[in-house]
Write a protein that binds this DNA or RNA. Structure first.
Lengths: 200, 200
DNA sequence: TATTCCTCTATTCTTTCGGATAGGTCCATA
DNA sequence: TATGGACCTATCCGAAAGAATAGAGGAATA
């Protein structure tokens, strides 16, 4: 049962490794960069599970994950991160990662997740996939939400105006202010952001 | 560490309970009906985790799950099933279940999942969350997918053209043909459709 | 009461989209 | 070789969107 923990933050890496060892994983290796991690696979053989950090040197976004998965010969490789977006996690899973492990996970859960992935299952915390909507509140006004819904349905400003019995200019106003609130470049971007945050 | 396994199939229930006990869970209780399970909670107190079968007598679909969650005082309750549809699993999770455990899970994974849910995390097998994207293939051309990705990022045609070293008109062409293929009214609509079908 | 926020409207202007039409190359396959 | 598909470019036009600015009514709240 060989596990690799790759993270450039010494404290984080060592803590995780210590926990895993304490919980019965026999051989827990460590690496501080993607290069180190890949070399380690080359010299000592593939791991039963590799946990690699998203923000580690050499990762180049998810490209590092892809390369790591290649060298580990199909055995499970999971992405770790402290601050990756749900979108990144989903992408990682889509490209076949064994899981996504947020560093916010309790040590107990972390060990459970590791066990799980070693067993060949794919793991992701539901907190990622479960709608996080603590932000929403009174962030967008009711009208702005109306308009946003219309946009998400692919409607034009004119159509939205007709639906709610408004003038087109008014809809435009809402589109603009709402897009600013969401930090969206335009209506399409706003629609995607809305979909991501599940705030429709 | 008290766990409840509720299933009307004696063999299944006892097997699962035996595995959990073998893997270190101290107190594993069993029930063959929802009534029994709820009474058990009433007399011996709430469990750290309750695994209840979807097809058990008294369940009445997900209503039984809801009631079980109420009596267990907010502690994790997970749905088990041999043949529930993904839709049911998603519904269960939406109503706050601690997880969905298919009976097809290996015993190892089952234990890992239990550990995980006891720790307060929510669990669902990725097979549920992994998208079925068998439709996509060759539906949109590679270029059209490029453009679609750009649109989903809220980019303008001009930006997309720059990204791929094309003329803006060309991008427009792709937008048009691609929108037609997706039956989208406009770029925004196309972006939403793409997101829904996970074909980015 | 004054202030703030949401709401709606108006005008003007520039940029972007969307559609139509009309070419062209490259490539694979029948 | 011909046919069709994906790909690229061009010009033109109208519609839509986006941005800026200005004003006004209503409701809630400090």
């Amino acid at each position: 049962m060989r596990i690799l923990v790759a993270d450039d933050h010494d404290l984080v890496r060592e803590t995780i490794a210590a926990f895993l060892e304490h919980e019965g994983f026999e051989e827990v290796c460590q690496a501080a960069t993607l290069q180190d991690a890949m070399e380690m696979v080359g010299t000592t053989g593939s791991f039963d599970l590799a946990l690699i950090d998203f923000d580690m040197p050499g990762m180049q976004g998810l490209e590092g994950l892809r390369r790591m998965m290649l060298v580990n010969q199909g055995r499970p490789v999971a992405l770790m991160s402290g601050a990756a977006t749900p979108a990144i996690a989903e992408q990682a899973l889509a490209m076949g990662a064994a899981g996504y492990v947020p560093k916010t996970l309790s040590s107990k859960s972390m060990v459970a997740a590791a066990r799980f992935m070693v067993a060949g299952e794919t793991f992701a915390p539901m907190s990622l996939l479960k709608r996080e909507v603590p932000n929403n509140d009174a962030f967008l006004s009711p009208r702005e939400l109306d308009v946003l819904r219309g946009i998400c349905d692919g409607k034009s400003n004119k159509e939205i105006a007709r639906d709610y019995d408004l003038q087109e200019v008014t809809v435009k106003l809402h589109v603009k202010t709402m897009s600013r609130k969401l930090a969206a470049k335009n209506r399409t971007h706003a629609a995607m952001i809305a979909r991501d945050r599940k705030l429709l």
